[in-house]
């Protein structure tokens, strides 16, 4: 299956189709939920044709829209993060959550929370520090090998996750305030705690997306190995460092807002790669749009499946993602 059309044409097509998918997801996310307002009325409120101060308008504008925006941003960031790690480590199973990067960010964020840091920039910075630390530990563990070993990388990530989990539990056990409940929900990956005022912080992921998109071709070349990429003119050290720093930064930024949501960075890039091939110039925008849509839909399930209340979206993504991870691992071993 080879597409003969030039890249720019394919890029426009892919972007348009996935933007439609994202738009439909957004509308679905706005329309359905635990409130018993009719979907039509909510949609009218969204389009601005309903009464401006009706209950429907409040639900759509004040409650659901911020949440949908949050879900889209988190989904896009985690998917793109997965894509970058998979290219850099040449390992299809790499993902911020599995590598322990999210866990490190959680340790940093919770520490910040308990120390009474403001959500931004205090907590974001402590989360970034935590995830950078884990990143160096995990990558350092397998550094020096010419190809980063799949197993040692995964084992390193698992151990980092276990270690971060232990630190988080110990932090919880010495905490006696009401923050415990908040931390617990946050560990499960929860989009319901984010306040509207904190949303503008997420704009900081946009320059990160841009940087990653401009490095899409070097990422293609890196798949052939570091020396091959260097021979084709890639400044391997600079590109890898930039990608790692930018990705870790944006992942820790969203982890601060959403908690630990796993496997998004695994499933979205993988499905898109099956559909579109391996060119990162297509996969980067596709992961942003598709990842956003995916997490909106997962969040919709998390809000509507339980008969009372809602469950954290991290549970939905893990229920979908973990079996897929096992399948990929099994296929890689064959």
């Amino acid at each position: 299956m080879v597409d003969e059309r030039p890249l720019s044409a394919r890029l426009i097509l892919v972007t348009m189709v996935l933007a439609m998918v994202l738009l439909v997801s957004v509308l679905l996310g706005l329309t359905f939920g635990s409130s018993d307002q009719g979907g039509g009325e909510l949609l009218r409120a969204f389009m601005g044709t309903g009464k401006t101060h009706s209950l429907a308008s409040v639900i759509v504008w004040r409650i659901r829209l911020p949440r949908v925006i949050l879900a889209a941003t988190v989904g896009a960031t985690l998917s793109l993060g997965g894509l970058v790690f998979q290219a850099l480590l040449r390992n299809p199973l790499a993902e911020p959550y599995i590598l322990g990067i999210s866990g490190g960010s959680a340790v940093g964020a919770i520490t910040g929370m308990l120390l009474g840091f403001s959500p931004f920039p205090g907590m974001a910075l402590s989360a970034f520090g935590g995830s950078m630390l884990i990143l160096f530990l995990v990558v350092g563990l397998v550094a020096g090998q010419t190809t980063l070993g799949r197993d040692s990388l995964l084992l390193g990530g698992v151990m980092m996750n276990a270690f971060c989990g232990a630190i988080i539990m110990s932090l919880i056990s010495i905490t006696q305030t009401s923050e415990v409940h908040q931390i617990l929900f946050w560990l499960m990956g929860d989009l319901s705690m984010c306040s509207t005022e904190r949303l503008p912080v997420l704009i900081a992921v946009l320059p990160c997306f841009t940087i990653i998109f401009t490095l899409a071709r070097p990422m293609n070349l890196l798949l052939a190995g570091r020396e091959s990429a260097a021979a084709l003119g890639v400044n391997v050290r600079l590109v890898s460092m930039l990608l790692l720093a930018v990705t870790t930064f944006m992942v820790s930024l969203v982890v601060c807002q959403s908690g630990l949501i796993g496997f998004v960075g695994l499933i979205v890039p993988h499905v898109l790669r099956l559909l579109l091939g391996s060119d990162h110039r297509l996969l980067t925008p596709a992961c942003i749009l598709g990842g956003g849509a995916y997490l909106i839909l997962c969040d919709l399930l998390a809000r509507t499946l339980p008969t009372t209340g809602e469950m954290p979206v991290g549970i939905v993504t893990a229920l979908v993602g973990a079996p897929l991870f096992i399948l990929l691992l099994w296929r890689a071993r064959r």
Binding site: N220, L223, A224, E227, S228, A231, G277
Partner: peptide, 12 residues
């Protein structure tokens, strides 16, 4: 440069 070792799993 044409290297001795070629990528086995280059997905292109």
């Amino acid at each position: 440069v044409v290297p001795q070792q070629l990528p086995q799993d280059f997905p292109f």
